[in-house]
Write a protein that binds this DNA or RNA. Structure first.
Lengths: 319, 319
DNA sequence: ATTCAAAATAACAACGTTGTTATTTTGGGT
DNA sequence: ACCCAAAATAACAACGTTGTTATTTTGAAT
């Protein structure tokens, strides 16, 4: 059905190997015939057959992204950035929202060049049977895996936040974040606050935002304020939580300092001045793609490795 | 590098064509050898090469989903349902969040069996150059395209809502939804309310929710209530808007009737009794997959066609 | 005009499958 | 023991490419 090299060859009165060379601009073909062939190919709407190419070259120029929890809004931006970074590196990104083993197996059958996993913990671990056969890189929270994982150092981020508040002279800190969750990122943040504040001998309180949405945080803070009052040094677990908290702040309360975890451009448009610590989606994407493509090109086997990404502290003030 | 049929054949001392047949349970191979071959294949961790298969069979058993606006949370559930429905039908779903033309072109090169497009209007139209070569189906709002599109009949849904309120005896209706937007779904809903209320000689007001989120709606209604009061017959543009509106309702206000657009399971857990009109993601997914696979199997050319899905009205009362 | 190297093009094998055709093996009937 | 059909297996062509090798064409030097 589809147009092949042979069809073009017949039309142009040349051999199909010449067409193959012409279309990839080989110096072995004369300019004149190249032009003729390219024109004909365009005219006939030739679409290269990746299966055939892949069969001989062992390359598909396609990377599979395993993203079983599409609904996690937080990583949507990351997915977009990864797509861009991969395109830049000459790869096409195909996403599967299926369960990780099914997805990876199919990627293997399709002979994709590599796999990126949005790691959600145990349930997303890929078996060695698979990872022995294709370069893999994960994005998640540091843990031992038979392939590399990119880890945003939440621990370090929270320490930065605490240090900043201490430096500013606050002796009591309020952490507002999701406390009851299985999401390991949230657990790490909470745990770090506890441990580090104790270490630095700063008093702290953990306030449950009851979720990661603006609505939930707003509601939670409202309840909290009924009986108590917030300290002046505040750490928020995420951008959305920050927004929820800000609903209860008057412009007057300028003596308060808010440090939020995250690194997204939305901070730029907040009216109230805030600090943020986090790694941007762009940096994460770049790191993922860099490491993966490096391994693909080197034909190197997957190896256990945790690659830490260190958050940067920023101050946002619209004035 | 990877294990091939020939490797297995060598190990088993048979020809590779026998291995091929054995692995697909052909009756042409004796039970004993089949077992031996299958065991060996398992042991050697054989992974079929889809490129080779696709080359000879012209089938990849893979469908591409073009989903350029991943962040649109509303369709996330739909994507999950489509994935399930496709799996049921024997296909693997690969998503691209790239721009539609790039995505479709690559799907074509990869020789996928079909394409589903989450249609967002003009910007997502695929050119005939592409659609002549692969079965396509879109999901979006009714419009003329060179391939079929599944349309949820928002128009009909809103009429149902208005009719219900009229039947209940209300003479004035408030519609709370996104009024200033380019999202054609929202525009259709608003327009229908206007036209149909006028036709039925019912007075109505359009209240701008200022967005599709719960927060926005809550805020908007709060503003509105400062100067005016809501009528007893209320139509909400979506589930989230409904949630925003409900924040301002006391359990006392039982004489009010709310009809919300949408069809998602979350309605089941709302405390206040509400009506909903909408088509469930499951139904949409089923319809998309049914039409697409039908066309794939029939080897039929894409044709311009609008397939309407009619919303169902439901009453939700936790008691 | 003839020769010969260089340039251009053609031919071919290979990639890993599938499905068809050809060959070998098996064992029941004599 | 021998023949023959049926059953089992092997061989092979084809799918659409790429890269290597073989052949033809070109045109400059004689």
């Amino acid at each position: 059905m589809a147009v092949t090299l042979k069809d073009i060859a017949r039309e142009c009165g040349v051999s199909y190997s010449t067409v193959s060379k012409a279309l990839k601009d080989s110096p072995l073909v004369t300019q004149a015939t190249k032009r003729k062939i390219k024109e004909k190919a365009e005219e006939m709407n030739y679409i290269p057959n990746n299966s055939a190419r892949s069969l001989v070259s062992n390359k598909s120029h396609t990377i599979g992204l395993i993203w079983p929890a599409v609904d996690r809004v937080a990583v949507t931006t990351l997915a977009t950035q990864v797509n861009e970074a991969l395109k830049q590196a000459g790869y096409f990104m195909a996403v599967s929202i299926d369960n990780p083993i099914t997805a990876a197996s199919k990627f293997l059958e399709l002979r994709f060049d590599g796999v990126i996993v949005f790691d959600e913990g145990e349930s997303t671990t890929l078996p060695e049977k698979i990872t022995k056969n294709i370069p893999v890189i994960a994005y998640g929270v540091a843990r031992k895996l038979p392939y590399p994982i990119i880890n945003v150092h939440h621990n370090w981020a929270m320490k930065q936040a605490v240090d900043l508040l201490i430096e500013k002279g606050y002796q009591s800190i309020d952490y507002i974040g999701e406390l009851h969750t299985k999401d390991i990122r949230q657990i790490v943040k909470k745990k770090t606050i506890e441990d580090y504040c104790r270490e630095k001998q700063v008093t702290y309180r953990l306030i449950d935002s009851g979720g990661l949405t603006e609505m939930a945080a707003k509601q939670a803070v409202k309840e909290f304020l009924k009986t108590e009052t917030l300290h002046d040094g505040i750490i928020c677990g995420s951008y959305d939580i920050t927004m929820g908290v800000l609903h209860h702040m008057d412009d007057l309360e300028l003596e308060k300092t808010i440090v939020a975890y995250d690194n997204i451009k939305q901070f730029k448009s907040i009216e109230t001045p805030v600090y943020s610590v986090g790694v941007s989606a762009e940096q994460i994407a770049e790191s993922l793609v860099k490491h993966l493509t490096k391994n693909i090109e080197a034909g190197r086997k997957n190896a256990s490795e945790v690659i830490d990404l260190f958050p940067t502290l920023q101050y946002h003030d619209k004035k």
